[in-house]
């Protein structure tokens, strides 16, 4: 396998992981590219558990990015809705939202990043608790408690959002119902 094959095999998984970690398509795209540049520079041909290693690089790249990004102000902004419900978003923001149907990334983004990392590795990539412990360099007990806490929070988020969020998933189609291009032959 060469670099191109590596990219073809893992690009979707890496991108998806980044997307669910950072909840921003543009950032996820940059991070995905950053991860592959890191991979290409390393001796990845000599790695035994390639996928586990790639995901470790991916999740850690995302965690670093989030650490860099989260100034105090951004933290407040990002978590405002947890305390107040959704504020009325400004027009540009609204347009942005209408373009994405990616609600699950939205739910994930409400979780603390360390918990998000555990849930992503566990449920997107099906790694064992032991593997996750190794990848994130945290004790097994911590992985378990983060997973447990994550599931509890996610359940609460799902219960809170209810009908309105489910309806929102349809919005992109609303935007496009009368714009879908019928002229492709």
């Amino acid at each position: 396998m060469g670099n191109r094959e590596l990219f073809q095999t893992y690009s979707k998984e890496v991108y998806r992981t980044c997307y669910y970690m950072v909840h921003d398509a543009a950032d996820a795209e940059d991070l995905c590219q950053e991860v592959f540049i890191t991979l290409f520079r390393s001796q990845w041909q000599n790695i035994d558990h390639l996928k586990a290693w790639i995901m470790k690089v991916t999740v850690n790249t995302c965690l670093n990015h989030l650490k860099r990004r989260n100034s105090l102000q951004q933290k407040l902004m990002a978590n405002l809705h947890l305390f107040k419900g959704s504020p009325e978003p400004p027009v540009e923001k609204l347009a942005e939202q209408k373009e994405t149907k990616l609600e699950w990334a939205g739910y994930m983004s409400r979780l603390p990043v360390k918990i998000r990392a555990v849930l992503t590795l566990r449920y997107m990539h099906d790694f064992s608790m032991d593997e996750i412990s190794g990848m994130l360099a945290i004790p097994l007990g911590t992985v378990k408690s983060r997973q447990h806490k994550g599931l509890r929070l996610m359940k609460k988020i799902l219960e809170e959002t209810g009908v309105q969020i489910i309806a929102k998933e349809e919005e992109p189609y609303g935007q496009n119902r009368s714009t879908a291009k019928a002229s492709l032959k």
Partner: peptide
């Protein structure tokens, strides 16, 4: 998290 329909790939 694994549903391709949920995500728009670049």
């Amino acid at each position: 998290l694994n549903d391709d329909n949920e995500i728009l790939y670049p």
